[in-house]
Design a protein around this nucleic acid. Sequence first.
DNA 1: GTCTATAGGCAGATAGAC
DNA 2: GTCTATCTGCCTATAGAC
Lengths: 192, 192
Amino acid sequence: MSNKKSSREKILEAATELFHLKGYHATGLSQIIQESGAPKGSLYYHFPNGKEQLAVEAINLSATRIAAEIKQNLAVYEDPVKAFQYHIESISSIFHSIEPISNLKNVPMGLLAMETAFVNENLRQACEETFELWGNLYFEKLRSSGYSEERAFLISKTLSALIEGAITLCITKKSSEHLIHINKMIPLLLTK
Amino acid sequence: MSNKKSSREKILEAATELFHLKGYHATGLSQIIQESGAPKGSLYYHFPNGKEQLAVEAINLSATRIAAEIKQNLAVYEDPVKAFQYHIESISSIFHSIEPISNLKNVPMGLLAMETAFVNENLRQACEETFELWGNLYFEKLRSSGYSEERAFLISKTLSALIEGAITLCITKKSSEHLIHINKMIPLLLTK
DNA sequence: GTCTATAGGCAGATAGAC
DNA sequence: GTCTATCTGCCTATAGAC
């Protein structure tokens, strides 16, 4: 109930932002502490397993947050085409703000995923489960909109790849362009 | 004409593989030298600007290589649907081999792109141009298959995102699954 | 072209006082 | 819960000999 976030929360929050933005290897623990404003000595108290634990929790945190956002976005319209277009627009709006960096907190899971895939099995698994979770939400929306299991499966997999790839390209270009383009293909893609 | 690669080539080769596989920040110059088998003292002779120069050249190298492969793959079939499906299959075949890691040399440009987007403008630009180059090849194939400029533009952008995203998911899962799924959607996606 | 030696910094992690 | 001090190791980069 306290208004101020606990040190643990502040550290995890800063870590989540930095990991998703700069990546795992480019982010130092010292920077996390600094940006969090938390006491310097508290990191290893709250996260005894250090950097890896911090990253796992960061992945899980934004996995849950984004999942909630996906659910919310897809529920705005009953029509699946409109719903997914709304969702993609909502992602692309991040790039419109003047300072997109601070808003990109959770979005680019792909960075952490590729960085760790061959290097750290725990982190790789956390990322894999995250993508699975998000894809399942797409699947459910399609199922409840009357798509057959086969179609829903295929389309949800395609949407997962398409959105993740478009985010990659948007970050590279520092522009929402690509997400806006793919949005025009959603009606065709969602053919029953 | 010499059979042995020059030291410069060997270093660049090793750097290209490691950067694309583990990423920019997780790859040390010492490891590059070690894997290349090149003389230890030669790195800064051939690449006076150190790690950044090495990375720019690595990006350009695999940009060119993949571009050649894309051209080749898309030329196998005249029918664009078959051509793109062949191309995607050819990418996915990388994941089938017993030791996929060594074959992933150039594929995951997205890793380098996201790692450097907010951190190093030179590298970011090199990645942006690479994506542009590959996308243009998709566009040309569609144009020469009779697609309108608008359609070709939209579809090529979609294909770029879709393929890049599917690669991300395949690497995360260490499986070719996702690329195979999206391949089934190509006919629908290429609707004129 | 290649080598050694080394600077100088920062990384992640631990021990022990408070 | 938090702090300071410190260890160990790796990193990029440079200087100067061969």
